[in-house]
Computed example of a mutant assay.
Amino acid sequence: MSDLEKGRVEHNEVATAELNANRTRGAGSAPHVNGHHPWNQPLAIKPVTRLGNPVPLGLTSFASTTLVLSFCNVQTRGVTEPNIVVGMTLFVGGLAQFLAGMWSFPCGNTYAATVFSAYGTFWLSYASIFIPSTGILAAYADVPDQLHNALGLFIITWFIFTILMLIAALRLNVGFIVMLVFLAATFLLLAIAEFQNSLAITKAGGVIGLITSFMAYYCAMAELLKPEDSWFTLPMGNIPKRLD
Protein backbone atom coordinates (compact mmCIF):
# COMPACT_ATOMS: atom_id res chain seq x y z
CA MET A 1 0.00 0.00 0.00
CA SER A 2 1.38 3.41 -0.94
CA ASP A 3 2.06 6.17 1.53
CA LEU A 4 -0.75 8.31 0.18
CA GLU A 5 -3.30 5.51 0.43
CA LYS A 6 -3.43 5.23 4.21
CA GLY A 7 -7.05 4.90 4.81
CA ARG A 8 -9.17 2.13 3.39
CA VAL A 9 -11.62 1.91 6.28
CA GLU A 10 -12.94 -1.52 7.14
CA HIS A 11 -15.89 -2.26 9.39
CA ASN A 12 -14.81 -4.23 12.48
CA GLU A 13 -15.94 -7.85 12.57
CA VAL A 14 -18.72 -8.70 15.03
CA ALA A 15 -17.34 -10.38 18.14
CA THR A 16 -18.40 -14.04 18.55
CA ALA A 17 -17.17 -14.73 22.06
CA GLU A 18 -20.51 -14.01 23.71
CA LEU A 19 -22.36 -16.04 21.10
CA ASN A 20 -20.16 -19.06 21.73
CA ALA A 21 -20.62 -18.68 25.48
CA ASN A 22 -24.40 -18.60 25.09
CA ARG A 23 -24.40 -21.78 23.02
CA THR A 24 -22.74 -23.67 25.88
CA ARG A 25 -25.21 -22.59 28.57
CA GLY A 26 -27.90 -25.15 27.76
CA ALA A 27 -31.64 -24.96 27.16
CA GLY A 28 -32.58 -23.69 30.60
CA SER A 29 -30.27 -20.72 30.75
CA ALA A 30 -32.23 -18.44 28.46
CA PRO A 31 -35.87 -17.95 27.40
CA HIS A 32 -37.18 -19.43 24.20
CA VAL A 33 -38.26 -17.22 21.33
CA ASN A 34 -40.89 -18.86 19.14
CA GLY A 35 -39.62 -22.28 20.20
CA HIS A 36 -36.00 -21.51 19.39
CA HIS A 37 -33.11 -20.46 21.52
CA PRO A 38 -31.89 -16.96 20.59
CA TRP A 39 -28.31 -18.15 20.15
CA ASN A 40 -29.47 -20.55 17.45
CA GLN A 41 -30.60 -17.68 15.29
CA PRO A 42 -28.27 -16.65 12.47
CA LEU A 43 -25.98 -13.80 13.46
CA ALA A 44 -26.30 -10.79 11.15
CA ILE A 45 -22.81 -9.72 10.14
CA LYS A 46 -22.42 -6.53 8.16
CA PRO A 47 -20.29 -6.82 5.03
CA VAL A 48 -16.84 -5.29 5.03
CA THR A 49 -16.99 -1.70 3.82
CA ARG A 50 -14.14 -0.44 1.68
CA LEU A 51 -13.64 3.12 0.54
CA GLY A 52 -12.01 3.65 -2.83
CA ASN A 53 -8.72 5.50 -3.06
CA PRO A 54 -9.45 9.16 -3.96
CA VAL A 55 -5.78 10.02 -4.56
CA PRO A 56 -5.72 9.23 -8.33
CA LEU A 57 -8.75 11.47 -8.88
CA GLY A 58 -7.11 14.33 -7.02
CA LEU A 59 -3.82 13.94 -8.87
CA THR A 60 -5.31 13.60 -12.35
CA SER A 61 -7.60 16.59 -11.75
CA PHE A 62 -4.65 18.67 -10.64
CA ALA A 63 -2.46 17.43 -13.50
CA SER A 64 -5.04 18.10 -16.23
CA THR A 65 -5.80 21.63 -15.07
CA THR A 66 -2.12 22.48 -14.64
CA LEU A 67 -1.42 21.11 -18.12
CA VAL A 68 -4.01 23.34 -19.81
CA LEU A 69 -2.90 26.45 -17.91
CA SER A 70 0.75 25.73 -18.69
CA PHE A 71 -0.09 25.36 -22.38
CA CYS A 72 -1.53 28.88 -22.21
CA ASN A 73 1.49 30.21 -20.33
CA VAL A 74 3.90 28.97 -23.00
CA GLN A 75 1.49 30.22 -25.70
CA THR A 76 1.05 26.83 -27.34
CA ARG A 77 -0.55 27.16 -30.79
CA GLY A 78 -0.58 30.93 -30.33
CA VAL A 79 -3.03 30.85 -27.40
CA THR A 80 -2.23 33.83 -25.14
CA GLU A 81 -5.44 34.32 -23.16
CA PRO A 82 -5.84 31.91 -20.21
CA ASN A 83 -9.65 32.17 -20.10
CA ILE A 84 -9.99 28.75 -21.73
CA VAL A 85 -8.82 27.25 -18.45
CA VAL A 86 -11.76 28.68 -16.45
CA GLY A 87 -13.96 25.65 -17.07
CA MET A 88 -11.14 23.32 -16.08
CA THR A 89 -10.41 25.25 -12.91
CA LEU A 90 -14.05 25.25 -11.87
CA PHE A 91 -14.95 21.61 -12.42
CA VAL A 92 -11.76 19.57 -12.79
CA GLY A 93 -9.07 21.26 -10.74
CA GLY A 94 -11.65 22.82 -8.43
CA LEU A 95 -14.69 20.63 -7.81
CA ALA A 96 -13.23 17.19 -8.55
CA GLN A 97 -10.03 17.84 -6.61
CA PHE A 98 -11.92 19.33 -3.67
CA LEU A 99 -14.16 16.26 -3.53
CA ALA A 100 -11.08 14.03 -3.62
CA GLY A 101 -9.80 15.92 -0.60
CA MET A 102 -13.07 15.51 1.27
CA TRP A 103 -13.15 11.77 0.50
CA SER A 104 -9.60 11.44 1.81
CA PHE A 105 -10.74 12.37 5.32
CA PRO A 106 -12.87 9.24 5.92
CA CYS A 107 -10.01 7.20 4.42
CA GLY A 108 -7.81 8.48 7.25
CA ASN A 109 -5.42 10.21 4.84
CA THR A 110 -5.05 13.63 6.44
CA TYR A 111 -2.21 14.73 4.18
CA ALA A 112 -4.07 13.98 0.93
CA ALA A 113 -7.20 15.57 2.37
CA THR A 114 -5.31 18.76 3.16
CA VAL A 115 -3.46 18.92 -0.16
CA PHE A 116 -6.38 18.18 -2.47
CA SER A 117 -8.91 20.29 -0.59
CA ALA A 118 -6.57 23.27 -0.49
CA TYR A 119 -5.51 23.09 -4.14
CA GLY A 120 -9.13 22.55 -5.10
CA THR A 121 -10.00 25.86 -3.49
CA PHE A 122 -6.97 27.42 -5.20
CA TRP A 123 -8.35 26.53 -8.61
CA LEU A 124 -11.84 27.70 -7.68
CA SER A 125 -10.54 31.04 -6.44
CA TYR A 126 -8.29 31.38 -9.51
CA ALA A 127 -11.26 30.81 -11.81
CA SER A 128 -13.29 33.47 -9.99
CA ILE A 129 -10.71 36.09 -11.02
CA PHE A 130 -11.58 35.60 -14.69
CA ILE A 131 -15.36 35.42 -14.26
CA PRO A 132 -16.70 38.91 -15.17
CA SER A 133 -19.58 38.76 -12.69
CA THR A 134 -17.14 38.70 -9.77
CA GLY A 135 -15.86 42.17 -10.74
CA ILE A 136 -12.30 41.30 -9.75
CA LEU A 137 -10.65 42.21 -13.05
CA ALA A 138 -12.94 45.21 -13.49
CA ALA A 139 -11.75 46.60 -10.16
CA TYR A 140 -8.22 46.87 -11.59
CA ALA A 141 -9.22 48.24 -15.01
CA ASP A 142 -7.77 51.68 -14.26
CA VAL A 143 -4.71 50.37 -12.39
CA PRO A 144 -3.26 47.48 -14.43
CA ASP A 145 0.02 47.57 -12.52
CA GLN A 146 -1.87 46.83 -9.32
CA LEU A 147 -3.50 43.86 -11.04
CA HIS A 148 -0.10 42.30 -11.78
CA ASN A 149 1.08 42.91 -8.22
CA ALA A 150 -2.17 41.55 -6.79
CA LEU A 151 -1.89 38.40 -8.89
CA GLY A 152 1.71 38.07 -7.80
CA LEU A 153 0.68 38.22 -4.15
CA PHE A 154 -2.05 35.68 -4.80
CA ILE A 155 0.37 33.24 -6.43
CA ILE A 156 3.21 33.75 -3.93
CA THR A 157 0.80 32.76 -1.15
CA TRP A 158 0.36 29.38 -2.81
CA PHE A 159 4.11 29.09 -3.25
CA ILE A 160 4.43 29.38 0.53
CA PHE A 161 1.69 26.80 1.04
CA THR A 162 3.40 24.42 -1.38
CA ILE A 163 6.68 24.72 0.51
CA LEU A 164 4.84 23.75 3.70
CA MET A 165 3.28 20.74 1.96
CA LEU A 166 6.71 19.81 0.60
CA ILE A 167 8.17 19.77 4.11
CA ALA A 168 5.32 17.54 5.26
CA ALA A 169 5.93 15.18 2.31
CA LEU A 170 9.62 14.55 2.95
CA ARG A 171 8.87 11.10 4.42
CA LEU A 172 6.30 10.07 1.79
CA ASN A 173 7.98 9.09 -1.47
CA VAL A 174 10.38 10.50 -4.04
CA GLY A 175 7.77 10.87 -6.78
CA PHE A 176 5.51 13.10 -4.76
CA ILE A 177 8.44 15.15 -3.45
CA VAL A 178 9.70 15.80 -6.99
CA MET A 179 6.22 16.85 -8.09
CA LEU A 180 5.95 19.35 -5.23
CA VAL A 181 9.42 20.75 -5.94
CA PHE A 182 8.43 21.50 -9.52
CA LEU A 183 5.08 22.88 -8.38
CA ALA A 184 6.78 25.25 -5.94
CA ALA A 185 9.13 26.38 -8.73
CA THR A 186 6.12 26.95 -11.00
CA PHE A 187 4.36 29.14 -8.44
CA LEU A 188 7.55 31.09 -7.74
CA LEU A 189 8.25 31.78 -11.41
CA LEU A 190 4.66 32.80 -12.13
CA ALA A 191 4.63 35.13 -9.12
CA ILE A 192 7.88 36.77 -10.25
CA ALA A 193 6.47 37.04 -13.76
CA GLU A 194 3.49 38.98 -12.41
CA PHE A 195 5.65 41.26 -10.25
CA GLN A 196 7.98 41.96 -13.19
CA ASN A 197 5.26 41.80 -15.87
CA SER A 198 7.61 39.53 -17.80
CA LEU A 199 6.41 37.31 -20.62
CA ALA A 200 9.69 35.40 -20.70
CA ILE A 201 9.40 34.41 -17.02
CA THR A 202 5.75 33.48 -17.57
CA LYS A 203 6.82 31.11 -20.32
CA ALA A 204 9.51 29.67 -18.05
CA GLY A 205 6.85 29.08 -15.40
CA GLY A 206 4.73 27.42 -18.06
CA VAL A 207 7.53 25.01 -18.98
CA ILE A 208 8.05 24.02 -15.34
CA GLY A 209 4.28 23.73 -15.02
CA LEU A 210 4.23 21.23 -17.88
CA ILE A 211 6.81 19.12 -16.05
CA THR A 212 4.73 19.40 -12.88
CA SER A 213 1.63 18.15 -14.65
CA PHE A 214 3.45 15.15 -16.13
CA MET A 215 4.84 14.30 -12.69
CA ALA A 216 1.31 14.47 -11.26
CA TYR A 217 0.10 12.13 -14.01
CA TYR A 218 2.92 9.74 -13.17
CA CYS A 219 2.03 9.75 -9.46
CA ALA A 220 -1.64 9.20 -10.32
CA MET A 221 -0.83 6.20 -12.51
CA ALA A 222 1.43 4.80 -9.79
CA GLU A 223 -1.57 4.94 -7.46
CA LEU A 224 -3.86 3.27 -10.00
CA LEU A 225 -1.55 0.48 -11.17
CA LYS A 226 -1.81 -1.91 -8.26
CA PRO A 227 -0.12 -5.33 -8.45
CA GLU A 228 -3.41 -7.19 -8.00
CA ASP A 229 -5.10 -5.31 -10.86
CA SER A 230 -2.35 -4.41 -13.35
CA TRP A 231 0.27 -6.05 -15.52
CA PHE A 232 2.95 -3.68 -14.23
CA THR A 233 3.49 -1.00 -11.60
CA LEU A 234 5.34 2.30 -11.46
CA PRO A 235 7.96 2.93 -8.78
CA MET A 236 7.46 5.93 -6.52
CA GLY A 237 10.68 5.66 -4.55
CA ASN A 238 9.28 4.83 -1.12
CA ILE A 239 11.17 6.29 1.81
CA PRO A 240 11.71 4.13 4.93
CA LYS A 241 9.54 5.15 7.85
CA ARG A 242 10.70 5.91 11.35
CA LEU A 243 10.72 2.91 13.64
CA ASP A 244 10.24 4.81 16.92
Rank of each mutant, 00 (worst) to 15 (best):
G52C: 04
T233M: 12
L99P: 02
N238S: 06
L188W: 14
L164D: 02
P240V: 10
I84N: 08
P31L: 14
F105A: 12
A112Y: 05
W231F: 12
L225T: 04
I163K: 03
N20Q: 14
V86I: 15
S29I: 02
A204T: 02
L224W: 13
S64F: 15
L189N: 06
G87Y: 11
F214P: 00
V207L: 14
F187S: 03
I201T: 14
V85W: 00
A216P: 03
I156S: 10
N22G: 08
G87F: 15
G94N: 01
M215L: 15
A200R: 06
A168S: 14
L95G: 02
P56S: 09
L43W: 10
C107H: 09
N109K: 05
V178E: 00
L224F: 12
V174N: 02
E5I: 08
T24K: 13
T49S: 05
K226V: 07
T202W: 04
L19V: 11
S230L: 03
T114S: 02
M179H: 07
L99A: 13
A200W: 05
L170W: 07
V14S: 04
V174Y: 02
L224Q: 09
T76K: 01
D3S: 09
C219P: 00
P227V: 10
I192P: 00
G206N: 05
A204Q: 05
P47S: 11
N34E: 11
Y217P: 02
S230F: 06
E228I: 11
A127R: 05
H36N: 05
L4K: 05
N238K: 10
T80P: 02
T110V: 14
F176R: 01
C219R: 04
D229Y: 10
S213P: 01
T76A: 15
R50D: 03
H36S: 09
L59C: 07
L124G: 14
F182D: 02
